[in-house]
């Protein structure tokens, strides 16, 4: 047991089987406000909203399968999932970190404004949709596998990295309509995509030195979290997707 100066137990374990999401989250928040710094959740069976609205530095380790809206509106906490995450992981997140040792469902990082999300395997539809950035906040979403359609749709800021590590050499990413309506931020794609897989608002380019620095920084983190060799990952060829126009709909109107 780790205790702080006041003798408060800084680590807390909760067996989440048979606990409703409402009670579970109330206990997490209660613990957080009592100075607990690490919470270990065992037997998580789909409870929603874990870490939703948490706004203090706190580490939550989840063993099992957390439900939808994991870490929604989160501000500064860290969640590590040993299992798969469902839909809405990191929805409208402000800051903090979510690390998923498995797959994640649809809309990972929807409208996130800050924070970092690392997914070891694949993600569902609309990952990183409408991510945005503001001043020193810049959301980062790193996906180890591949994604379903509409990756980075409406993206307004931030960094989205799709590694495609579970694809064969030369096998294209599975996502179509990548970056439709994109008007900010950047997407780095490992593995190839065919032209038809891209939204019409994105341009394709080679990575510059500054891009490689960014990519390296987050790939290294990814490699540490999921026990990969970062150099091996970075040997792959990457392409960069960027918005062709910062105002894709600026000329839609008669003015």
């Amino acid at each position: 047991m780790v205790t702080n100066k006041k003798g408060i137990d800084q680590t807390m374990k909760i067996d989440a089987s048979d606990i409703s999401y409402k009670e579970l989250n109330a206990r997490i928040k209660d613990a957080a406000s009592n100075g607990v710094q690490r919470i270990e959740l065992r037997n998580v069976y789909g409870q929603r909203y874990i870490g939703t609205g948490l706004d203090r530095p706190l580490e939550v380790e989840i063993f099992g399968t957390p439900g939808n809206d994991l870490g929604a509106f989160m501000n500064g906490s860290r969640i590590i999932v040993y299992g798969n995450a469902q839909d809405g992981c990191g929805n409208t997140m402000n800051s903090g970190e979510i690390i998923v040792h498995g797959h994640a469902g649809d809309i990972v990082g929807l409208s996130a404004r800050g924070g970092e999300i690392f997914i070891k395997e694949d993600v569902g539809y609309r990952a990183g949709i409408h991510m945005k950035e503001y001043e020193n906040k810049k959301p980062v979403l790193v996906i180890g596998g591949t994604a379903q359609d509409f990756l980075g749709e409406y993206m307004a800021g931030g960094i989205l990295i799709l590694l495609g590590l579970n694809l064969k050499e030369g096998e294209p990413q599975q996502t179509n309509f990548i970056g439709t309506g994109m008007h900010g931020g950047v997407i780095y794609l490992g593995n190839v995509v065919d032209g038809f897989q891209l939204g019409k608002e994105v341009g394709v380019g080679e990575l510059q030195e500054s891009d490689y620095q960014v990519l390296q920084k987050f790939v290294e983190k990814f490699a540490v979290y999921f026990d990969y060799d970062a150099r091996e990952i970075l040997r792959h060829r990457f392409i960069k997707l960027f918005p062709l126009n910062l105002r894709p709909y600026g000329r839609l109107y008669a003015y």
């Binding site: 909203y49 939703t52 929604a72 509106f73 839909d87 809405g88 307004a156 309506g181 709909y249």
Partner: peptide, 28 residues
């Protein structure tokens, strides 16, 4: 920069999804 509000909420495609955002906000 342009502030673009998408036509739907991309986490709400059904009444069940609406319930989810309502309760996410209640939780928050």
């Amino acid at each position: 920069t342009d502030a673009l509000s998408p036509a739907p909420h991309h986490d709400i495609y059904s009444i069940e999804d609406l319930a989810q955002l309502i309760y996410a906000l209640k939780e928050a």
